[in-house]
Design a protein around this nucleic acid. Structure first.
Length: 1026
RNA sequence: GGGCCUGUAGCUCAGGUGGUUAGAGCGUACGCCUGAUAAGCGUAAGGUCGAUGGUUCGAGUCCAUCCAGGCCCA
């Protein structure tokens, strides 16, 4: 049997031994305009090469994008032509759509999460610009704060200079320079991603204007009396005389004294017990009486590794889920601290261990002590009668465990975060019980006891050298003397140390500034109620963000806004030395703000600042100038105030805030509080959150696992548009994944899309701009216009809903399935071969042009580089980014037509299936060799097929449609009942130009090797060239 | 440990109010074309819908528990 396949291969090889030469030859030919390169005198002795007479795709738009190299060129071009400024001018007077930028922190290079964030913002901005808004984007940077201070401090240390020895404004100047450097770096990195915005005039939290406005905002809180001075324990390094953040602390082994201390029960409130009991209908049952009587004789045992905090003790915390017992010591050595007959309350699971440490030989459990009973217990301080005569309430705390200690936690609200929180949570109840909720300042900045630790004043907890002082020993001695100590020991454990001095740190109570969540603002609302209402008025994408933010605001404590730092906006407040009142004077406040606007916040720290700002009206000697720095969250929470509200090219409130979902705790949160406190509503209408970027396996990226992906690497290897397409093809509201396989997939998808655009460009090289007339266009063209009308609605809606995944998936599927594999494939014959005068060809060109304009526009927000390139390749000199989305006539929509074509496509599938069998069995190779005979039982279906050029639709040289029941021996598809297809060989000769097989080839004697259509086309071409 | 959230083919995603053999694109394999050519077309394979238990005539869809992962707290 002959092998036609092999033979044809052999023939090709014989013609050209170097197959790859073909590319060059064809490429060279493709550059020649077929219109001017027509052979006018066909030679009779050899077959004429008609390929030069076809309207083949012709374009300089390369198949391979070379994005990493070429993208910077587009950026330079946009800068040259001042695209951003032009867009603003273009859209002057339009409705504004404002996405307000959440400021990244100005230190270090951007990472993949930052890139995702900025790209998403760019999608929002560009798509709304093309939807017809004035979508102005002003990027911003967060410039103050600790991390920059650390770096600057490090730099000074490298020069052998200590932070304390540097004048504060010199230090601040260095911080400013550091931030300036990094925001410059990041600005370049953002622009490299294709982000468009006002990079020449961004907003900075350290600009003088911002610093002035931030101070103004803070002073608004002072004026409305939402700002108050309270206290809070902070980690304190005695050696360095400074507060430390958690990140500045490292844990090292440390030997601590441990003590078991007994607190005598002072009072048992049976009412309180009953209030907590499951069955309050049985108050004062005999059982309870027994416990109460016993308890009044008993002592509650605590265990601590910091005996020096006992003067600061104000409460005892117990675990509501822990089972406690009342124990009696029955045997103990003489002279033991815990003596036979004494009663102690401890957690059951820890009793054995506690009594062992207390050197008790034998004990017995007398009774249960339910948590409900403990709720009503008040104890006495072990140093009662020596200046510690207050009540020590028992408080429920979820932080209490029964895996170590006694099941009771000695609570000194000034010396621990959890202690502080339990204390504050119970503040109202304590005050109701007439217990003073004030937290004492028992230890000073020098690490020594103050007057508020009676009997121990002046003793050092930690010395200036970082060694243990006498505090522990003295306190323990006092406890022994009071008979309160029942055990002691030593423990080596991990204990926080300063990362600089490596010396141990302590928690000590310090004055701090708070913004009250629950102060009545005069209209019955509080910051909390206002914020919760504002959350209700805000739209969240995804919707779950509302719950998350609501839950946080609902339960958060007052906002601590003070930091004992150097680099930031100061808390510009004066406190009267005697009354402790905050000075409220608008004249002073305005003096401060005006000075900041002119000189920056450094003015607060300049010589004579207090006198300058207080002026003649107030005596500076009467006031304390607060030198604390504002929490940077207050800075960024105020961006709406100094950026949105101040810039005439923006508006307040913003349409959209868009950040990572971690910002529910951060920027969304602080902006909401700030804005509700000063303006009564949120600074945004919509909050969009994105998830986090994970490695390919769905796990967190980490340097140690080596699964990190840097945006710079992706840009260098693939280009920014690939990174952007990655962003667009993910559901950003959830966590995303990235890695080599995923990027390869994105690059593949990009290449396919790019090729479809390239083909359109090549085809449109022959477009002479014949106007589109939908009414007279062939059905197939009208079908494509119908789809455009549908897509127009779909794409615009998806952009309005910020659903970029939907845009990307829809458009890529459309380009692949309906264009490349269907419409383009079918219309190649008409577009390549039809005569210059062909209406069909002109209609197809007009539709391809319309498709191109629509697609390039729709994709421009996602792929700004590639679409600009495509747009320019069409000969446009005006950037695609200045265009609105293409105007699509809604009248193009024709559902009846589309429905008919859906059925035609089904029949097409049967034909394609039948052709595949023929190909597999080597009866045909190209579909143009086939002549399908299609038998259709259903009349309306047959009519639909007959109404179209079905041979074109299935890309065969001929087709026959028959009525009748399906031929069982022919090819059928179960999902398309009533249709059978038999494939015959197309009869006649192959047309040398169109390659279609037809008995009519040679009808025109002038072109014996052509079909009539091609002959007529050639006649026109030859005549035109003559 | 608490709050919020996620888990559908190798990859990226669809799957209103529970209803026949769970879909798409890409990728893969195979075939065709060689006039989109480091391209284009076709066909096919590929899923215990994270797991288990329950509600129901019927669950990817509802409930519970568990597992894995994420963010924020502790």
């Amino acid at each position: 049997m002959p092998d036609p396949h092999g033979a044809s291969r052999a023939r090709r090889r014989a013609r050209c031994p170097f197959p790859w030469h073909g590319h060059r030859v064809r490429a060279a030919m493709a550059k020649v305009d077929p219109m001017s390169d027509v052979q006018t005198t066909p030679k009779e002795d050899e077959a004429r090469d008609y390929s030069a007479t076809l309207y083949l795709p012709k374009t300089e738009f390369p198949m391979r994008a070379g994005l990493p190299k070429r993208e910077p060129g587009w950026i330079a071009k946009w800068a040259d032509e001042q695209l951003y400024e032009t867009l603003r001018a273009d859209s002057r007077g339009r409705e504004k759509f404002i996405l307000h930028d959440g400021p990244p922190y100005a230190n270090g290079h951007i990472h993949i999460g930052t890139a995702l964030n900025k790209i998403l913002k760019d999608f929002v901005v560009r798509s709304h610009q093309m939807l017809g808004y004035d979508a102005n984007y002003v990027p911003g940077w967060d410039c103050h704060g600790l991390p920059i201070e650390w770096k600057v401090e490090e730099n000074f240390r490298a020069q052998g200079r200590n932070k304390d020895a540097i004048p504060i404004n010199e230090f601040r100047r260095e911080c400013r320079e550091f931030a300036t450097h990094w925001l410059g770096v990041q600005s370049g990195e953002f622009q490299r991603l294709g982000v468009i915005g006002d990079f020449k005039d961004p907003y900075l939290t350290m600009s003088f204007l911002a610093e002035a406005q931030i101070a103004r905002e803070l002073m608004k809180f002072a004026v409305s009396e939402q700002l108050y001075r309270g206290s809070k324990p902070v980690m304190w390094s005695v050696v360095e005389r400074t507060a430390l953040a958690e990140a500045e602390v490292e844990y090292h082994d440390y030997q601590s004294d441990t003590v078991l201390v007994a607190f005598p029960v002072a009072n048992v409130n049976t009412q309180a017990i009953n209030a907590v009991r499951d069955n309050p209908s049985e108050p004062g049952s005999p059982e309870d009486d027994a416990i109460v009587t016993d308890l009044l004789e008993a002592r509650i045992v605590i265990w601590t590794t910091t005996p020096w905090t006992l003067p600061g003790n104000r409460a005892i915390a117990y675990g509501p889920g822990i089972s406690y017992g009342l124990y009696e010591v029955t045997e103990a050595p003489a002279e033991n601290w815990a003596k036979p007959g004494e009663l102690f309350v401890v957690a059951d699971s820890l009793a054995e261990q506690v009594f062992k440490e207390a050197r008790v030989d034998a004990y017995r459990r007398r009774d249960d002590v339910p948590a409900a009973v403990l709720a009503g217990v008040t104890a006495r301080h072990p140093l009662h009668g020596k200046g510690y005569d207050f009540a020590v309430p028992l408080l429920a705390g979820d932080h209490v465990t029964d895996d170590a200690g006694t099941g009771f936690v000695h609570t000194a609200p000034g010396h621990g975060v959890e202690d502080f929180e339990v204390w504050m949570d119970n503040k109202r109840a304590l005050e109701a019980a007439e217990i003073d909720a004030t937290i004492p300042y028992t230890v000073g900045a020098d690490g020594r006891y103050t007057r508020e630790a009676p009997g121990f004043e002046g003793l050092a907890v930690i010395t200036d050298e970082g060694k243990k002082g006498d505090a522990n020993k003295t306190v323990i001695d006092a406890l022994v003397a009071a008979g309160a100590l029942i055990g002691r020991g030593r423990l080596k454990h991990q204990y926080p140390h300063s990362w600089r001095s490596k010396k141990p740190v302590i928690f000590r109570n310090t004055p701090q500034w708070f913004i009250a969540m629950d102060t009545d603002l005069g209209d019955g609302s509080t910051l909390r109620t206002r914020s919760l209402k504002a959350i209700g008025d805000t739209q969240f994408v995804p919707a779950t963000g509302r719950n998350r933010l609501h839950g946080m605001i609902e339960h958060r404590p007052d906002w601590v806004v003070s930091r004992q730092r150097a680099w930031g906006v100061p808390i510009t407040v004066f406190v009267h030395k005697e009354t402790g009142d905050v000075l409220i004077d608008e004249v002073v406040n305005e003096r401060i703000a005006a000075a900041f606007e002119a000189e920056g916040a450094d003015a607060w720290f300049a010589e004579g600042a207090a006198e300058r700002f207080l002026g003649a009206e107030h005596d500076a000697a009467d006031y304390e100038k607060v030198d604390d720095i504002l929490d940077v969250w207050f800075d960024s929470g105020s961006t709406h105030a100094f950026c949105l509200a101040k810039r005439p090219d923006l508006k307040w409130p913003a349409d959209v805030y868009l950040e990572g979902s971690d910002q529910h705790r951060g920027w969304f949160h602080s902006s909401l509080l700030e804005s509700c406190g000063t303006r009564g509503r949120a600074p945004y209408d919509t909050v969009i959150t994105h998830g986090f970027t994970m490695a390919e396996d769905g796990r967190k990226m980490s340097k140690s696992l080596g699964n990190t992906v840097a945006p710079q690497d992706i840009i260098d290897q693939f280009g920014a548009d690939i990174l952007r397409l990655w962003v667009a093809s993910q559901d950003y509201t959830d966590d995303q994944r990235i890695g080599p396989e995923i990027l390869k997939g994105v690059a593949d998808a990009y290449r396919k899309l790019r090729n479809s655009i390239r083909w359109m460009l090549g085809t449109l090289a022959h477009d002479e701009g014949e106007p589109l007339d939908a009414a007279t266009a062939p059905e197939l063209e009208r079908l494509m216009l119908h789809r455009l009308a549908e897509l127009d609605v779909e794409v615009r809606e998806a952009y309005r809903k910020f659903d970029y995944g939907h845009v990307a998936h829809t458009l890529m599927t459309f380009a692949n399935v309906e264009l490349s594999a269907f419409y383009f494939d079918i219309r190649k014959d008409a577009l390549y071969c039809d005569a210059p005068s062909s209406e069909r060809r002109k209609a197809a060109l007009a539709v391809v042009r319309t498709l191109f304009d629509a697609l390039v526009g729709w994709l421009a927000p996602l792929l700004p580089f590639t679409m600009e390139e495509a747009w320019e390749s069409r000969g446009h000199t005006r950037s695609i980014h200045r265009e609105p989305f293409a105007a699509i006539d809604p009248a193009w929509r024709d559902d009846a037509l589309a429905e008919r074509w859906e059925r035609v496509k089904k029949v097409r599938r049967v034909v394609t299936g039948a052709l595949e069998v023929e190909r597999r069995d080597k009866r045909i190779r190209s579909s143009l060799e086939a002549h399908p005979v299609v038998r259709i039982a259903d009349d309306s279906l047959r009519a639909a097929v007959e109404a179209v050029h079905f041979d074109d639709v299935v890309i065969t040289s001929a087709v026959t449609i028959e009525a009748g029941a399906p031929d069982e021996s022919a090819f059928t598809l179960p999902e398309v009942p009533g249709v059978s297809v038999r494939i015959g060989k197309a009869e006649g000769k192959r047309c040398a130009r169109s390659w279609k097989v037809s008995p009519d080839v040679g009808t025109d004697p002038r072109y014996p090797d052509l079909s009539p259509r091609d002959a007529a086309a050639m006649a026109e071409i030859d005549a035109g060239a003559a």
